[in-house]
Design a protein around this nucleic acid. Structure first.
Lengths: 300, 300
DNA sequence: CCCCATTGTTCTAATAATTAGAACATATTA
DNA sequence: TAATATGTTCTAATTATTAGAACAATGGGG
């Protein structure tokens, strides 16, 4: 009697409903009929004896209880998915998926070479790339959301069981949009230094949820404009909102066409950049990738 | 495609198999035929592409991957069961979690008694305690980061919809060691207020209550030093580690000899500390806690 | 203000999944 | 060796899930 009414499937259904905004859209995403969704929700509501959606006409809004199940349900979903992956890894030694977080300031051209070769050789391993920012990357590693960090900024958190290797950051170019109001006045060094203080800095804000946040900005004077990722930063600069450092390879096209202009200022060394993973991660795929990338770095 | 092959049901099946020692016994427990168990396990193994049991004749032993799924699966089962419980309670007005902010310079014996009894009685409600410093608590309450403030300093912000009750306490004196590095600079009010943020706070951490999670401090810069009882707290302050409030009678000797110095700040009699929450918070758990606390106070 | 597309529910039939029961092979134990 | 228990496989039956159509309610656009 009274068995657990919550199933993985219905949690996936709730997740889809919330993400897509309606039963119908969720049904489409899950390749089901709307009625199937409707019945699934009804069944759960009936078995729990509570309502999860407040029906307001054709639109449904989650009740507090519904929100709770959705929020915790998503964690459960993630846990089970990871569990399936981990089990496969234990059985075969090979992880079915490797999640890689790349620091937004990091140039990843070389790294993608390694990944490309790896995928040719081991096509069954999925690679999941995400962009992360400053301490958000370390946090993701700690929580197991990523297996490998590329270009994470030092210092390396100690006593957490991480293995970290210094890698090249890649070339960062401070740029301004050619159509920026002050762009024409930046023709010589003297002017540049004088105007620099007046230019707004586009800064990527830390994505760290808990823990200490920090920002990448170097100097603290002048105005800041905060964005959440490198794409937004590039677009903010293109729109003439301000200036900022960008990995050269990501804006080569704009530089060639003269849409973005490099600022003739000296770049400070900045913090070191690390390749990092957990020591207790024994995945064979991870080992291949890190070994090869380190070899490539040191051969330069 | 490739959906998650792990279901709640199959986890329950695995759990029963391991607990009862055989497919047949598990089938009995789950009111199913043995063949149903057999098929369920086969299906999971097939979908994961790995084997979970090593068939040794009629007896089956879990493989390492099987053990992993069993172990983590049990946690998932517990989580979903609790989630179902919590959802039901949320639907009836009980909040799944109550976040409590505690002003950390003091310890609140009476309050923790109430909490302790509450947890025993309502184990599905999570209590999350975080520490806050000075007015940071009011801000946290306003922003909804905490539901209840304990020991918040007056005055109570008006017109914000707060309900506040004075917490009775003995005569507490905020003190610092005379030989503390910064003690000499605390001669006037201005200096004191400025330096206050830099002084480490000695906090009694009531670790006797399991089931209470503790968040990181709400103030990021205020350092904390945790001890387990009042004796340790006094000695930590004597050692110059930081500051804290101490009942006057316990340190009268030190005060007389000038070994400990009272901090000439805040609570000069008139400033009381409060238990406070939002009036529009209708959570039943919160109501129980506050009602009981008030009853306990007035019975004295 | 009205029309029309969209949404969610309900119904029924169909499809897919799970399950029981019997037969059987194998292993354990007395 | 006999007796018992176990897990697998087969088939059939039961159950659960799903699709599709009909419908009512809703809200946005013209």
């Amino acid at each position: 009697m009274a068995r657990n009414p919550i199933s993985i499937e219905v949690l996936e259904t709730l997740d889809a409903i919330e993400r897509r905004g309606s039963f119908a859209k969720a049904a489409e995403e899950l390749n089901k009929a709307t009625s199937a969704i409707s019945y699934a929700v009804q069944k759960l509501e009936e078995q729990l004896g509570i309502s999860l959606f407040q029906r307001l006409g054709r639109r449904s809004v989650l009740t507090p209880a519904g929100r709770l199940i959705l929020a915790e349900g998503r964690e459960i979903l993630q846990t089970t998915r990871r569990l399936a992956d981990k089990a496969k890894e234990v059985a075969t030694g090979w992880e079915p998926r490797i999640s890689i977080g790349i620091e937004s300031l990091q140039s990843y051209v070389d790294f993608f070479q390694v990944i490309s070769a790896f995928l040719l050789e081991f096509p069954t391993v999925e690679i999941d790339i995400s962009e992360c920012v400053l301490n958000g990357g370390w946090e993701a590693l700690e929580q197991g959301r990523v297996d490998l960090l590329v270009g994470a900024p030092g210092p390396v958190p100690s006593l957490k069981g991480y293995r970290a290797v210094v890698i090249e950051r890649g070339e960062l170019v401070p740029v301004i949009a050619a159509n920026h109001a002050l762009a024409k006045q930046l023709d010589n060094k003297q002017n540049t230094e004088r105007l620099l203080a007046q230019l707004r800095r586009i800064v990527i804000h830390d994505t760290s949820f808990s823990g200490i946040t920090r920002s990448e900005g170097l100097s603290s004077d002048g105005q800041m404009f905060y964005v959440q990722n490198m794409d937004q930063k590039i677009h903010a600069i293109l729109a003439g909102i301000g200036i900022g450092n960008i990995p050269k390879h990501r804006i080569q096209g704009y530089l060639d066409k003269g849409i973005l202009l490099p600022l003739g200022i000296q770049q400070k060394g900045g913090v070191e950049s690390f390749l990092a993973w957990k020591i207790n991660n024994k995945g064979k795929g991870l080992k291949v990738i890190t070994d090869r990338f380190i070899a490539l770095q040191s051969s330069k």
